[in-house]
Design a protein around this nucleic acid. Sequence first.
DNA 1: TTGAAAGCGCTAACAC
DNA 2: GTGTTAGCGCTTTCAA
Lengths: 336, 336
Amino acid sequence: MDIKIVDVASKAGVSPATVSRVLNKANNVTLKTRTKVMEAIQELGYHPNAAAKNLRSQRSMAIGVIAQDINSAYFTEIIKGVENMAYAQKYKVIICDSENQRDKEREYLNLLMDRTIDGVVLIAPLISDEEICQIADKGYSVGIIGRNINHEKIPCVFTDNVKFSQQVVLYLIENGHRDIVFISGYAESTDSYERLEGYLKALRDRQIPFRPELLENGDFNEDGGYEAMKRLFAKNAHFTAVYCANDEMALGVYKACAERNIRIPEDLSVIGVDNNRISKYITPTLSTVNQPKYTMGAILTEKMIDQMNDDVHHDKRVFVVDSEVIIRDSCKPLGE
Amino acid sequence: MDIKIVDVASKAGVSPATVSRVLNKANNVTLKTRTKVMEAIQELGYHPNAAAKNLRSQRSMAIGVIAQDINSAYFTEIIKGVENMAYAQKYKVIICDSENQRDKEREYLNLLMDRTIDGVVLIAPLISDEEICQIADKGYSVGIIGRNINHEKIPCVFTDNVKFSQQVVLYLIENGHRDIVFISGYAESTDSYERLEGYLKALRDRQIPFRPELLENGDFNEDGGYEAMKRLFAKNAHFTAVYCANDEMALGVYKACAERNIRIPEDLSVIGVDNNRISKYITPTLSTVNQPKYTMGAILTEKMIDQMNDDVHHDKRVFVVDSEVIIRDSCKPLGE
DNA sequence: TTGAAAGCGCTAACAC
DNA sequence: GTGTTAGCGCTTTCAA
């Protein structure tokens, strides 16, 4: 840039320090000088240089968000929560799309190390808890959405997967279903694991024996759900309901059923998780589970900014938010 | 941060300048010293401070992308194109969600002025062409996706709205439709205007008189499409096809039709624009127009980075990419 | 091929 | 309430 703080200073007939004070809203400046300075800034069209400011103040007033896929509403809703909270507190947000690659995640994490960002919000990260703890141990600000990391400096916001999963399956059981398939996401995922746990818990609650042949993995995507169903058909297993660890896989289930003329919900009840926008538009509308995504982003960000500003790590660190089971047309009581 | 370039320098027994040379891959460093330095960097876990680097080098190696809504696949697909191209050239990307607010757009544009970013990609911006030209005139790097701005320093990538729109309407006409509704997006939008133009052109091509009562505005969103249809019904106008300036509005059309038991496509053919993911999943599947979004983002970014690096503004500045009309189940020949 | 030294534009400590 | 001054951590002439 061309024009800098000294230019403003001399134009206003004050020192650079005074201009800086005006800029940073220090209160020990007379209204008169403040006005003079503001005018000079206006007339010259001055914009403070962020790099210089960051270097001197040792902070960037920016936080990063690392998500696996900005094409998915699950992430973008959370990001919107982050963004709005950050914006309200004068923080910039750097959104990073890791495209589901561990390496890209690590790459983006370097923005922390090189001080481009003051803190980072990780949404369901791929890298391990240990790696994240190490980063926090080095003094960097990290927050997590979607899982619980046991580290006193890492704020976490997540929903109780086990609980809602149990609710989903109990709902099916109460509607007469006993042969319930569970299609899981990829194995390393805590989400997937916990949703399975809820499924098992519900079966146990109602003393329904667990049938391992009703368990399939669908890798959290549509194709995976489709293939999982094909494997189930091939097994000739009997079942009347399918619970998918996310909506994407449920879409695959729909497709597999359509191909075999299996009617949903008459022949088969289906429930997903995520409240993907498509779930409301597909026929039949898909029952699912909704997480308060926006709120999750906002809560975590507020907490992180707090922590970055006073670095006292008092009060609450872990936030568990409630999810809501949404029953739509894709399931019905058995035998009705 | 704690450890800095001098620390690495003394550990490696060289000067800071040499460390800097290694870091920036200058070629005038012996392999031996380079190795020494690399080792020191490794052992100390050194990360260059971005702010200092930016200040000194007067560039941030970051570009911004300003989009209206990161919840919409139209924008995120483009952003992915931008991101990947930028990443390949060692540029960081700051994604900004203006949430459809002009002020937030301007706010984010300040990242250019304060040198947080070296350039900005605007996707279908809300602010005026003049405002954008002014920014470019001041020497900032700006690129646009989705419209053509007549300024020699502003690279533009867009699709020919008039052309595909004309194709869509000609398709309907060739299938026997003559009474074709056009539901437009908000008035200020060039996209909306040009799509209307294509619609009119097709009618003129086939000498079908334009009936103003078949023109409605739906503000580019589902509700708008719904309301537009209700107004059309209220008018008691006769029509056999509806062309919506985007898929969102087509969703509203579906809803309005469902309420009145109007069957798509038997009673009414519907076509949208955007190839929204939902269009493939809704029943009947929605005919639409696909833009090569990812490519558009990538092309523009490549061009911008080029321009930022040699600031020679030779060769091509304007890129028009082709869109593809996708016919699905939501339309059929009239009277069949 | 390497080092010394200046300086990018700002803020904060200290002096007045 | 305002000014002076040092220095944030790096790159980049210039000289050796």
